[in-house]
């Protein structure tokens, strides 16, 4: 009996803090269905490619992706040639050359994606004092992750009558404090998808959220696959050890 009490108490001791983390976010963020949820969760490559298109055409005007290089897009199913062509669409600064001058050249697959602003001060002054955060890790850096990103992008609304918005701010149901410096960006047909997918606002927000989950956790698929193998192997070891233990202990437990 006391074993069960102890076990229950131990479980409670471990579960309580976990529950408290969940309770921390004050705004309820509904959970969405994602292809990367679950034990064998994986990225829907077409969706992530569409999301990249959204980033390129909409978000990249203000938000950087500082940890992403062009070469990373090969993981999304682009060929090496496509990645080279994609990189060549961009110009990056290089140098100094033999005369000591910096120069512009076409980007290579090993280059990082160019940032929209040269530095933080510039970014702030271009955005009324607000700093558009880098998006590489945003899906891991906010409570709710991709669910939050999706609802944030769709959460713009009229401010309640009793709320006074500061200058240049927008009302958003899901942003902590409800006043967000980013204006509403995602609307129906904001982008035209190359693969012909219907581009309503929900779809756009969903795709770009999936893309940002990929930029934050590009190794997720290999992690899930590795994990499955590791768990099965550990389970095998544990079962073997259990039977070996029973067999060896049988010698003394008979007494």
């Amino acid at each position: 009996m006391r074993k069960y009490i102890l076990t229950a108490a131990a479980a409670l001791a471990l579960a309580l803090p976990a529950a408290s983390f969940a309770a921390e976010a004050e705004i309820h963020i509904p959970a969405e269905k994602w292809s990367f949820n679950g034990i064998t969760g994986h990225f829907d490559k077409e969706q992530v490619q569409r999301g990249f298109q959204v980033y390129k055409e909409v978000c990249s005007a203000c938000h950087s992706l500082e940890y992403i290089s062009f070469r990373n897009f090969e993981a999304l199913g682009y060929s090496e040639a496509q990645v080279k062509a994609l990189a060549a669409e961009y110009e990056v600064e290089d140098g100094p050359d033999d005369n000591g001058d910096m120069f512009k050249r076409k980007a290579k697959p090993s280059d990082k994606l160019p940032k929209p602003y040269p530095n933080e001060k510039f970014a702030r002054s271009a955005n009324g004092g607000a700093l558009p955060p880098d998006l590489s890790l945003i899906a891991k850096a906010r409570h709710g992750g991709p669910d939050y990103l999706f609802h944030l992008l769709r959460g713009y609304d009229e401010a309640p009558a009793d709320m006074k918005l500061a200058d240049g701010m927008s009302y958003n149901k899901y942003f902590p404090g409800h006043q967000i410096a980013m204006a509403k960006q995602i609307e129906d047909d904001k982008v035209t998808y190359a693969d012909g997918t219907k581009s309503d606002a929900d779809q756009i927000a969903r795709d770009v959220s999936a893309f940002l989950m990929w930029t934050a956790e590009p190794k997720m698929e290999v992690r899930h696959a590795t994990g499955l193998r590791v768990i099965i192997f550990t389970l095998l070891f544990t079962v073997l050890a259990y039977f070996l233990k029973r067999r060896i202990w049988a010698r003394i437990e008979q007494h």
Binding site: L236, L240, A241, L244
Partner: peptide, 27 residues
């Protein structure tokens, strides 16, 4: 191991368990 009955199976089990542990470590 002694000379108890069921020795063969125990040794097989022991070998399997040790092998699995070693292989896991090596992996």
């Amino acid at each position: 191991a002694g000379g108890a009955a069921g020795e063969t199976r125990r040794d097989f089990l022991l070998d399997m368990t040790v092998a699995t542990g070693v292989v896991g470590g090596v992996m």
